[in-house]
Design a binder for these strands. Structure first.
Length: 296
DNA sequence: AATAGCAACAACCGCCGACCG
DNA sequence: ACGGTCGGCGGTTGTTGCTAT
């Protein structure tokens, strides 16, 4: 039958995204949402594949992303989840609000894998390296958890200790992931123009974003407890806009990760004119990032 | 100062499942 | 039931930046 390429190969740009392209994509999605990714590049005036646009948005441009290295608690959670779920990065990412599967996958391959090996633990099976390999059917999640948990100082906070450890956990995690997670809410809010207006409202709101991060690790792990993103507005007073988004601090910090070109990965953000002289995004003033025209 | 080697991460590729006509 | 489209996922590669020599 032969599968059609996701986009015309000719005339489609590849490689690192420029600030200009990011600007176009952000501008388009904030104003229109993404009806269908295939149409996004055309409508946004990008010479990119729709898939590439989706990836760029979900992995780097989504405003609810955390930046920077995974904290030790997050790392520990990834290890525990990996012990249960294996390389199902999207499932793991769904339990870590603000983190993407790509980010976790990269962090696993570059940091955690080595850390586990250094500790004498097989990163694939989570068993001691000198221990004879078990077949998958013999795989005992309980031993995985205890081993992975022993790697960190946060054993008392580990989900392994808050869960009974048995084979039902994979299903338990999977089914619980059907509840609103950070990633699903992120998908939700970019699903349409209405949501994008809500997003703008959300961005312009200046509540306390730190609540999200603090609450994630304060008394319960996100893997088992409801995150702020999971709570309804009534349950979570700091989560505005119908509970779709966590709250953010000062406007000037809302896109601090964008301003920080190094961390962000785009190195020419000096010319990223969606920010005004005061560093605030022009979109916050209702301006079209492309033309400077008033949108709202 | 030059450069080789390594680490980190952004991005691409191909496959798969869900959905729709 | 079937074929086509689309979004999503996981593996892999390419590029960039850092460090050691």
């Amino acid at each position: 039958m032969g599968r059609q390429p996701c986009c015309d190969k000719l005339g489609v740009k590849k490689g690192p995204w420029t600030a200009e392209e990011d600007k176009k994509l952000i501008n388009f999605i904030l104003t229109n949402g993404h009806c269908c990714w295939r149409a996004v590049p055309k409508l946004a005036g990008l010479r990119r594949c729709g898939k590439s646009c989706r990836l760029r948005w979900t992995n780097y441009l989504r405003p609810d992303l955390k930046r920077g290295l995974l904290s030790e608690a997050e790392e520990q959670l990834v290890i525990d989840l990996h012990a249960r779920l294996g390389n199902r990065w999207s499932k793991i990412a769904a339990r870590l609000p603000g983190r993407t599967d790509n980010e976790i996958k990269n962090h696993w391959n570059t940091h955690i894998k080595k850390k586990l090996l250094k500790s004498g633990i097989d990163p694939v099976t989570h068993e001691p390296l000198n221990k004879p390999q078990q077949t998958p059917s013999e795989h005992d999640p309980e031993s995985e958890v205890s081993l992975s948990s022993s790697l960190a100082d946060h054993t008392s906070e580990s989900p392994a200790n808050t869960h009974q450890t048995n084979n039902t956990h994979v299903d338990e995690y999977n089914s619980s992931s059907s509840s609103p997670s950070a990633s699903s809410s992120a998908e939700n809010y970019c699903a349409g123009a209405d949501e994008s207006l809500v997003l703008l409202e959300y961005i312009c709101g200046s509540d306390d974003q730190s609540f999200l991060m603090d609450s994630l690790w304060a008394d319960e792990s996100p893997a088992v407890g409801a995150t702020t993103a999971n709570l309804s507005p009534n349950e979570n007073p700091s989560c505005d806009v119908a509970g779709l988004f966590p709250s953010w601090p000062e406007e000037s910090e809302s896109f601090s990760w964008l301003l920080g070109g190094q961390d962000y990965g785009v190195h020419d953000f000096g010319g990223f004119d969606c920010f005004g002289d005061d560093g605030a995004m022009n979109i916050l003033d209702g301006l079209d990032l492309e033309t400077g025209d008033k949108i709202f």
